[in-house]
Simulated scan of single mutants.
Amino acid sequence: MKPYDVWLMWVEFPDHPGVGKVRPVVVTEVGDDGVSGVIVKVTGNINWNEPGDIVLADWQQAGLLKPSLVRCGQRYEFLPGDLYKWFGSLSNSDAAKVADGLELTSDSLPYKRTR
Rank of each mutant, 00 (worst) to 15 (best):
V27A: 00
F13R: 15
A99Q: 11
R71I: 05
P24W: 06
V26N: 02
Y111I: 02
L64Q: 07
L102T: 00
T28E: 00
I46Q: 06
M1S: 09
D107M: 11
K85R: 12
L69M: 13
M9G: 02
V55D: 07
R75K: 13
G31K: 02
V40K: 04
P110K: 08
Y76Q: 04
N45G: 04
G101K: 03
M9E: 11
V98P: 08
N47I: 05
R115T: 14
S36M: 01
E12S: 06
Q61R: 09
L8D: 13
S36T: 00
L64F: 06
V98G: 01
S108G: 04
N45E: 01
V25Q: 02
A99K: 14
G37H: 00
S91H: 06
G37C: 05
V22Q: 14
F87S: 01
R71S: 05
Y76S: 01
M9K: 11
K2N: 09
S93Q: 15
P80I: 07
G20A: 12
M1R: 11
K66I: 13
N47F: 12
D32K: 03
I46P: 02
V40G: 03
G34H: 04
Y76T: 03
N92A: 15
N92F: 13
G18D: 09
L69N: 07
A57N: 15
L69D: 08
D32P: 12
W48G: 13
Q60E: 13
L65F: 12
K112W: 15
G34F: 00
V70H: 07
T43S: 10
W10S: 08
Y84A: 11
D53E: 11
D53V: 14
P3C: 08
L90Y: 04
Y84I: 14
M1W: 09
T114C: 09
K66T: 10
N45L: 09
V38F: 04
Y76M: 07
P14K: 14
T28Q: 04
N49M: 11
L83W: 00
P80Y: 06
F87W: 10
T105S: 13
P24D: 12
G20D: 12
L102C: 04
S68G: 08
V42Q: 01
W59A: 03
Q60H: 05
G81D: 10
T105Q: 11
G73W: 08
K112S: 15
V30S: 03
S93N: 13
V22D: 15
K21Y: 08
P24M: 13
E12P: 11
D107L: 10
G63L: 10
E29C: 02
H16C: 06
W7T: 00
I54T: 06
N92M: 15
W59C: 07
A95M: 05
K2E: 10
G81W: 09
K41P: 00
D100Y: 09
Y84H: 11
N92P: 10
A99G: 13
D58S: 11
L104Y: 04
R113E: 07
V30K: 00
K97L: 13
V6N: 01
S89T: 06
R75L: 03
N92L: 14
T105D: 10
L83R: 05
